[in-house]
């Protein structure tokens, strides 16, 4: 016969004391991370201070509504701002359907036709892989290369459009198209396959499923991607310079067939002009460009938070 008796409760140190050196290493690591973050932040703040001290005094409603002028006192950004808007219109009309269609093919159809058991399927599979790899590569190609492309094929060459906004917008569109395709694919991939199955199980065709269920569910992601692509396009200068856009243009553009003008081009012109007056104009124009960029990114963030579907 045995009985259970509680052991006497004596305090024993089981947990070892803190390792002060390990704690120090942890702190040091954290500090290094914050330092790395501060470097990029400091650069941004320095840019802001520089631009705002030089540019803020020159900002006025007239600065936005005045045309370009050889005299700093009369000069404004109306021409280049309108040009930028028209460029973005061309760009968006070009990249949304083409980018989305490419993304839908690669994400929804590409794998279907790549049936490894048949010869044609294997060829299509190889083609799809080739396209996918090259889209990733295209997204990393320097923008000036797209300028050369635009000059050779759009401004001159086969299409021979001349130095018009249509050609400029298409060049910028080609430049950001990979970004749109990649963002579109991610947005489509985020729609769970259970939605596709649910739709197909009701007797919907693949097309009906994509058009009426998958694409509407992917709209917030696609819209975010398109806006981020546009905010890259809006700041591009090099490809437009290469297309041969006039650096001094006092004629407000009236449509896509007008001569190219753009805000970053105007900034480039003013910065390279002699005299502090022009430097101040450039700084003011940079502020306007920054405001437009912040607005666009805010819309993207708003869309993402407002319409994003939690699955």
């Amino acid at each position: 016969m045995s009985a259970t008796v509680d052991a006497p409760r004596v305090a024993v140190q089981v947990i070892p004391p803190a390792d002060s050196r390990a704690k120090l290493r942890e702190r040091a690591f954290e500090a290094a991370l914050i330092f790395a973050l501060l470097i990029s932040l400091a650069m941004l703040i320095a840019l802001f201070i520089d631009v705002f001290t030089k540019g803020l005094p020159g900002l006025s409603p007239e600065f936005v509504t005045d045309k370009a002028s050889a005299f700093p006192a009369n000069a404004g950004i109306a021409t280049s701002l309108l040009g930028t808007l028209w460029l973005m219109v061309v760009c968006i009309v070009f990249i949304v359907p083409i980018g989305l269609a490419s993304a839908v093919y690669l994400e929804e159809y590409g794998t279907d036709y790549a049936d490894q058991r048949t010869w044609t399927g294997r060829m299509i599979g190889r083609f799809n892989t080739f396209v996918e790899v090259n889209i990733q590569n295209l997204a990393a190609v320097p923008s000036i290369v797209y300028g050369i492309l635009g000059l050779a094929f759009l401004v001159r060459g086969p299409l021979d459009l001349g130095k018009i906004i249509l050609a400029g917008g298409l060049t910028l569109g080609l430049l950001v198209l990979p970004v749109v395709i990649i963002a579109g694919r991610e947005a489509l991939r985020a729609v769970p396959s259970s939605i596709r199955e649910g739709s197909m199980a009701l007797g919907a065709t693949k097309w009906q499923t994509i058009w009426r269920q998958v694409l509407p569910a992917a709209v917030p992601g696609v819209a975010t991607g398109v806006i981020l692509a546009l905010s890259r396009a809006i700041g591009e200068t090099a490809p437009l310079l290469l297309l041969g856009a006039a650096t001094f243009n006092t004629q407000n553009p009236s449509g896509i067939f007008s001569a190219i003008s753009a805000l970053p081009l105007q900034i480039n012109t003013w910065i390279s002009a002699p005299g502090a007056d022009f430097q101040a104009l450039a700084a003011s124009a940079i502020i306007v460009l920054l405001v437009v960029l912040v607005l666009m990114n805010s819309v993207a963030i708003y869309l993402r938070n407002r319409y994003e579907q939690k699955w």
């Binding site: 199980a201 007797g203 919907a204 009426r212 269920q213 569910a217 579907q309």
Partner: peptide
Amino acid sequence: VQVRKRIGMVFQKPNPFPKSIYENIAF
């Protein structure tokens, strides 16, 4: 596609469409 119109399916995890209740049925 014609087969699935006659033979419906309900899945393991509820998979409503990200739409209104009405639109889920009407689709």
